[in-house]
């Protein structure tokens, strides 16, 4: 018979449901995974519907759990079903070596999803921009807020990095899906918010743009290389992105100016004690 597994789209929910199904030896083809946040269906489940007696607890490699945590954060509809099939094959199916087979039909999509998610996490670590909103009057801690739009549901996976790095500031990262705050003691997760709940700018953004403009070398324009690492979908929340267009547009003129500059003559060696010792050392 078919089981409907209606879960909230999180790793924790999938894991506990998958454990339950696996304990009862339910075959992957008999499970219909449903994302409870995507459907209005209030289908009540029948916990007594299992036909076989529960197995004792099964063990899976830690690598699988790490893979599963990332896969669950993806948004592809098939992820829960394929992940369960993978789990079933790894354990009851006896295919213990599956994790070492990247070309397997189930491992391949899972690896691809996990990779996309881990890239998204990496980009979140890179492209979150905190804005100073004030100072806590009681303890003097600076308070920062950031707005970010990740592609997948990664707030929980990305948060520990910010905790380690910015432990001594109070900060919140708002995303459409889920928000996280740190107060020096613990991470708190709350439902998603809107871009308007975060400050639009920071007093240091101008200085940051000055740096970005000055560190750019117009003689080596490689727009595609930039875009493959910093795709345009992230630009709207990056303060420096608003000057990219001007930098590209003006680079040709800047290089032409350099080329047209008359070459500078060599100035005589100044009378400096240190340079004299250098010369003596080289002559000896």
């Amino acid at each position: 018979m078919t089981h409907t597994a209606q879960i909230h789209p999180t790793f924790e929910a999938w894991r506990s449901k998958a454990r339950e199904l696996l304990r009862h030896g339910v075959a992957p083809e008999n499970v219909d995974w449903v994302d409870a946040s995507q459907t209005a269906s209030l289908l009540a489940e029948e916990p007594s519907a299992y036909q076989t007696a529960p197995n004792s607890a099964v063990k899976v490699p830690a690598d699988f759990l790490r893979l599963a945590a990332n896969v669950c954060a993806h948004t592809d509809e098939r992820r829960f079903a394929i992940l369960y099939r993978l789990l079933h094959r790894l354990t009851l199916g006896g295919e213990k070596h599956l994790l070492g087979m990247p070309s397997d039909r189930d491992m391949h999509p899972c690896n691809a999803w996990a990779k996309a998610v881990s890239r998204d996490i990496h980009k979140m670590h890179a492209f979150v921009r905190f804005r100073l909103v004030g100072v806590n009057e009681q303890n003097g801690r600076e308070q920062f807020v950031a707005w970010f739009e990740p592609e997948y549901r990664i707030t929980r996976l990305a948060a520990p990095f910010f905790e380690k790095r910015f432990a001594s500031m109070d900060w919140s990262i708002l995303t459409p899906d889920e928000c996280v705050s740190w107060d020096g003691e613990k991470l708190t997760f709350i439902p998603g918010m809107s871009r308007h709940d975060a400050p639009a700018a920071d007093a240091h953004d101008d200085l940051w743009r000055t740096y970005y403009r000055s560190i750019f070398n117009p003689a080596r324009l490689k727009v595609q290389a930039m875009q493959s690492e910093m795709p345009m979908k992230y630009w709207k929340n990056l303060p420096e992105a608003e000057i990219i267009h001007d930098l590209i547009a003006s680079s040709e003129t800047r290089v032409r100016t350099m080329i047209a500059t008359p070459e500078r003559p060599v100035k005589p060696v100044p009378n400096n004690a240190y340079l004299r010792t250098l010369r003596q050392r080289q002559e000896s």
Partner: peptide, 9 residues
């Protein structure tokens, strides 16, 4: 971590 990329890639 690369926090940004300039148009020189």
């Amino acid at each position: 971590i690369c926090h940004s990329y300039t148009p020189d890639g």
